[in-house]
Write a protein that binds this DNA or RNA. Sequence first.
DNA 1: GGGCAATACTG
DNA 2: CAGTAT
DNA 3: GCCC
Length: 599
Amino acid sequence: MSTKDQSITSKTTNKADRHQEKLFLADVKAIIIEAGLGKTRSAILKKQLIVYGGQYHRSIQSDTTHIIASKNIKLARLCTILKIDTIPSNLIVVDADWLSQSLTKGQLIDVGQFNLVKRVQPKTTSVQLDKALTKDDNAATLEHGKKEQIKRHSDASPCTDNSDHNEVPPASQKRPLEEKKISSPVWLKIKRGRFSKTNTKKRAIDNSNIIHQPLDSDSDYVESDDDNNANTSEIEMVLSQLPAKYTAKPSSSWACARPSSLPVKNRNKHITDILEILQKKYENLGDQWRVKGYTKAISSIKNYPREITTREEAEAIPNIGKRLADKIWEIISCGHLRKLDYMDNDVQTALNVFTKIWGAGPATAHNWIAQGLYTLDDIRAKAKLNYHQSIGLKYYDDFNERIPRAEVVEIEAVIREEATAIEPGLEVITCGSYRREKPTCGDVDILISHPNGRSHQGAYHKLLRRLQAKDFLTEILVNQDVDIDHQKLLGVCKLPEEGRKYRRLDIIVVPYREWACSLLYFTGSGHFNRSMRLLARKKRMHLSEHAISVGVLRKVTACSVLKYGNQKLTRGTPVPTKCEADIFALLGLDYLEPKDRDC
DNA sequence: GGGCAATACTG
DNA sequence: CAGTAT
DNA sequence: GCCC
């Protein structure tokens, strides 16, 4: 009866856990504003608040600490409801998501990004408390201005405190902040004109009919850096013309709608370790959809605050269905999953090794194994390799090694130096996991463009030649040279010093009108991108690395066959974007900083 | 029972 | 087109 | 795989 024993012991620990957790809202004495949250949600929040030791206040009292409200509520409305003129400075006005997410986690999370009222300059007007547009850069300084002793995590992020990338962000990143009211009529006019033109170039990407920035043809318009007419008003205008159901704020079940959580302690490692082995197996099988299911499930489990003790408990976790619940139950009751015993470990090992060769995937790996090859030496000696795979094999060890941030900085410096020598105004920014502030990176992703909308042209080829001349760029895997505006390099680079490793380097050059979408795409994470693109689609929009369009119609069954030439599908109207925040705003999302997109 | 991101290369 | 990559 |  080992199962019984186990459930008894775990019950006790569970109880202890719960007792501790009871306290986690003890310092929260809050008013919950129903407006914008809805009856149901506010009732749940109220109940949970009390269950976990917090106090619910009906009106402001001397010891009230928090006001919990919908992030969409206007300050004026809030004051009306509370029957006050200004928010007392000792109160933290916080987005209800803060409480929701704290409850999910079973512990208080940092209030920072959920803070709805920035204290530094008290706002008097009915400013919309819109994080998406205010948080962006000032946040750090503003939000921590006030007391928040409840702060839990000393939130030391594991990342090296490298502020390099903070100085890098191009001006455009900051644009929404500098919120000018000028609604840039010039821009609007020209873009409307262009919209009507159908520009169906064969290869044209889905931005072919996007607005070209005024200056590429005519040019009384010169974009100077301080002419930052933020797109905000235009985005709002677009939004105002959309049906309400497409402008609604997505629930936090969307990965792109919530900040990626700080790593919590995984209390179910015994489970996830096994599921990861299974996942790997399906990955090697090329079963991408099953892999996707596992990915989401494993992530949910890792974020689950308690040890899972019953099948029901497991099945109640999002992304865990009956089948995974059964597996989990087998693991927790037997400590083992029999399915693993049926796996041919030699084959699995070989598959794992082979698919780590750049350019080789499950199909290739299986072929090799079918030919009786099992080790890298076998491959070296006998396998037939295409060009990519031969490079992948040549640098097998180096490519599978993580790159420390510090080295990414060095690599970026080389590229920036060369780029700047070609054209001083080029913007060069490192994206990918580097921009998401990971301590190490798998490769280096560099995005290049020019704010004047045209000087990026030609830079790519010159850059490549210079980098090759320096023996910095040592291999070119893929050289995508789509048109005068779009290039992409997948290559290999090495810093000059002896003993440096060969690193995977990606460079993309894009026209400035695509800056925001490119930056968003290239920054990832992959999961984040997929989530956001799916959301866009649900809202009848279309998001790619080139543009975001509204009013997209797809054939019911053939949505994935959205191909350029297909007249039956309307590709919608591209919306000009100047910064990532514009895209978030269009999708009704709160802005997330790169580090919060690490899902 | 269908959908799960969107693009672009290689061979 | 299948496979691999971003 | 999961979700709708």
